[in-house]
Simulated assay, not measured.
Amino acid sequence: MWWKRLSEKSFDLAVEQFIAEHPHFTFQTFLGYGSYGRAYLIEASSSKQQYVLKCLRPKHRRHQKTIDKFKQEIHILQQLPLPYVPSIHTTGAIQGIPFYIMDYINGQTFEQLIFQDGAKFTVAQSLAITKQLLAQIIAIHKHGIVHRDLRIPNILLVNQQLHIIDFGLATTFKPNIDLATIDNPKQAPNHISDLYFIGHFLLFLLYSNYEPRSQKEQAWQHELHLPMDVQNFLERLLWIQEPFTSTLEALQSIPH
């Protein structure tokens, strides 16, 4: 059976062959992979505009739950006609493995900016970036979606504007959840999850400008020496203090 023989390397060749059979596009390069998907850069033959072809990893091709999750990601992206979320243009299957083609966001992730380029962000800059991110997440929540993976590899900067990618863990927003029933804020299907991730995102920005004063590692509250209103804001995002009741409240509470 073909599915027993299909390795990821041979599937890469299948993707290249698939693109070669569709003259509207040309294959550019393999971009990388995550837990569930593989991504390839392709280019429109006429306009030279670049796109990303994302498909399920071959090892998951017989896992119906994972297939359903991948298809849910497609459905979620189709519900988000927002300028900072990639739009889907085509869906299909290659050797029975689902894929979709979406916009290519030509920017740098905050992971690249901080750890490759050595970018440093002041407290004021970090709060301004967080404010922009919160405003974007409010719009996503209004469309009934929670991202649940707002980490530094999934947030890009393009001409000082943020873009959000990788909705593989996104789910439908469920209002009116009793916070006492939430065991893991990362997985909460409401604003708590996204705010928790935004708290850690903000910490990465703030630590980019941190110079250790001793070899002994301490809690971030002691290492960063933040203004008290910024520390309190962070602790509410991170569930250390009473959490915000909504993303809008978090945005309205961001220190100036």
Rank of each mutant, 00 (worst) to 15 (best):
S246Y: 04
Q72C: 05
Q49E: 15
I177A: 06
A124P: 04
D149Y: 02
H22C: 09
A170Y: 10
Y104P: 06
D68I: 08
H24Q: 15
A128I: 01
G144S: 05
A188D: 08
E21L: 12
F99A: 02
F115P: 06
I145Q: 03
I97D: 07
S126G: 02
Q72F: 06
A20P: 01
G32M: 06
L157Y: 02
L169S: 11
I94L: 10
P86D: 14
Q78R: 15
L156F: 15
P189C: 04
K54G: 09
P153L: 11
E211W: 01
Y51G: 10
N184T: 15
I88N: 00
K59R: 11
A93R: 14
R57F: 01
H75M: 04
N209K: 03
R38V: 06
L113K: 15
L134I: 06
T247G: 03
E21V: 00
V158I: 13
N209W: 05
I165V: 14
H143P: 07
V52G: 04
W3C: 02
L156K: 01
I165C: 05
L156A: 07
R151M: 01
T122Y: 03
S193T: 02
K142V: 00
Y104D: 03
T26V: 14
R213H: 10
E235N: 10
A119K: 15
D183G: 05
F27Q: 11
Q79D: 10
Y196D: 09
A20K: 13
E43N: 08
F173T: 00
C55V: 04
Q28V: 15
T109D: 13
T171V: 08
Q50N: 12
E211Y: 12
Q28I: 14
Q215V: 08
H60P: 00
T172W: 06
Q49P: 06
K59Q: 11
S208P: 00
F167L: 09
H147Q: 09
D117Q: 15
Q252Y: 09
Q78D: 05
K71W: 15
A44I: 02
L179T: 08
T171R: 09
T90R: 15
L202Q: 10
P98S: 01
K216S: 07
H143N: 03
A14K: 09
F233C: 09
K4P: 08
N184D: 14
I129F: 12
R213T: 12
N209D: 15
E235F: 08
K48F: 08
L169Y: 04
P98V: 00
R5V: 02
F173L: 14
K9I: 14
I152C: 07
F11L: 01
Q108P: 00
F167R: 03
E8Y: 11
Y40W: 04
L82Y: 00
W3Y: 12
R38W: 00
K216W: 07
R38P: 01
T66W: 01
T122K: 03
K131P: 05
Q136E: 12
N154M: 02
P189Q: 12
F244L: 03
D12S: 05
Q231F: 03
L80I: 00
F27E: 08
Y84F: 14
G37S: 15
Q160P: 09
L224G: 00
K174H: 07
I137P: 05
H89D: 09
I67Y: 12
